[in-house]
Design a protein around this nucleic acid. Structure first.
Length: 225
DNA sequence: GCGACAG
DNA sequence: ATCTTGTCGC
């Protein structure tokens, strides 16, 4: 029985987790549909103003063109707690996602997906809430262990937590620190890694995420926050 | 009790 | 994440 809600964020954490378990159990992970557009999300935090500046950059995955950009300011109603990032950054990001005009085939998150103590990082959360494929790409580890990937771009190793494979450490550039990729929703490990490598050809982080990062930081400064 | 700990 | 200048290296 799916919970009723008017706004995606009205789902409680338990609802969302139950919903994902249901989906993962009953919905075959079909081949990921063609990903033509991707929305990268990020948040910049103003320490003294106690406000979050969220942003999304929608790109054409094939050409790399920016199709849409959107920023929104929200208050920090929840503290940063490792494992509960969704409840700090989720509200403003979901609000932004609802306001996007461009159809989005993939949500790209700056954080974990499956590689989470409860297997439900922010990438899973947003993907499930919107019913859109999603992938988590984090710069550091929240939980789990892995061996060091080979030094060349494209090499990766499995990320394991409590006996589960929860993601992969992926080298996106020769000799640079790997990123930690994990499925969010409707994408498997190979899908996730393939997408991240496709989007991160020039820098360590996927280009859309870098753009989202710059977008929110510039916006925060423009707003005097 | 101790250490770890996305952004 | 944020607070911050210069600096080491390809």
């Amino acid at each position: 029985m799916l919970p009723a809600f008017t706004h995606p964020w009205d789902l409680t954490p338990a609802d969302a987790a139950a919903l994902q378990r249901t989906l993962r159990g009953r919905v075959e992970i079909r081949p990921l549909p063609p990903v033509r557009t991707a929305a990268a999300l990020d948040v910049s935090f103003s320490k003294f103003a106690k406000e979050l500046v969220g942003g999304a950059v929608v790109v054409d995955v094939e050409t790399g063109d920016v199709l849409e950009e959107r920023v929104l300011v929200g208050s920090a109603t929840f503290p940063y707690v490792p494992g509960l990032l969704s409840f700090r950054e989720g509200p403003v990001l979901s609000e932004i996602l609802m306001r996007l005009k461009t159809p989005v085939d993939l949500i790209l998150c700056d954080g974990q997906g499956l590689a989470h103590p409860r297997r439900f990082g922010i990438a899973c959360h947003l993907g499930v809430l919107f019913g859109i494929p999603s992938v988590g790409c984090a710069k550091s580890l929240l939980c789990g262990d892995c061996r060091e990937p080979g030094e060349k771009r494209g090499s990766s190793t499995r990320l394991i937590h409590n006996g589960d494979v929860v993601g992969r450490a992926v080298r996106t550039r020769d000799g640079v620190k790997p990123v930690f990729v994990s499925p969010g929703h409707l994408a498997d490990f190979d899908d996730s890694v393939r997408l991240i490598l496709r989007l991160a050809s020039r820098y360590r982080l996927p280009d859309p995420i870098r753009r989202a990062h710059r977008l929110v930081n510039e916006a925060r400064r423009r707003f005097g926050l």
